[in-house]
């Protein structure tokens, strides 16, 4: 009796370059997980380490091939005069909605990988410690523009947002 959540997906997608960003992150994960195994294999020479390294590489490569395009299809965001709305997650889906009137801070973030690809993230924080909404994988210029408009909109709203 699979019932879909009766929410339409948010309007905008991430930047197409975000796929590369997610792939690069998978690559980093491969280095972090597989690297020590290979080094140990080389140092100790235990054969099974070679096999686990191979399996790790296979799994991460599979993830890197399949999941990033999936994420690109799923990840969506939208900002209206009233609310910030995002949808994320390929395995566990997450829909987040925060009212603009309760936004306290707007942060932009450019990690090293994101800078390389000209990407940025915007995090919108409310008075709730758990209620932050993060829009990832935006083109850097779009992220800056979005942060600017969001800051303007929220500054126009009075109150301490709790």
């Amino acid at each position: 009796m699979s019932v879909a959540l009766p929410l339409r997906p948010p309007a905008h997608q991430a930047s197409p370059r975000a796929v590369h960003w997610w792939r690069l992150r998978a690559g980093l994960l491969l280095v972090v997980l597989g690297g020590p195994q290979v080094v140990l294999w080389w140092l100790i020479g235990a054969g099974w380490l070679g096999w686990t390294a191979l399996v790790t590489a296979g799994l991460v490569a599979g993830y890197g091939l399949v999941v990033p395009p999936l994420l690109y299809r799923i990840h969506r965001w939208e900002v209206t005069d009233q609310a910030v709305y995002t949808l994320s997650g390929w395995l566990v889906r997450e829909w987040r909605i925060a009212p603009i009137s309760r936004v306290q801070t707007v942060d932009t973030e450019h990690g090293p990988l994101q800078q390389l690809l000209g990407l940025g993230s915007v995090t919108v924080t409310t008075a709730s410690a758990r209620g932050a909404v993060k829009i990832t994988g935006l083109a850097a210029a779009d992220a800056a523009e979005l942060a600017r408009t969001l800051t303007e909109t929220t500054q126009a709203t009075a109150g301490d947002a709790t």
Binding site: I97, P99, T126, G131
Partner: peptide, 24 residues
């Protein structure tokens, strides 16, 4: 001050969802 709906593959199949209301 905000909502999150979370749905794992199992929940998707069962038509369920976790709704979380955020507050300060």
């Amino acid at each position: 001050i905000g909502w999150t709906f979370r749905q794992s593959p199992f929940q998707r199949r069962a038509g369920l969802v976790v709704a979380e209301a955020f507050t300060a």
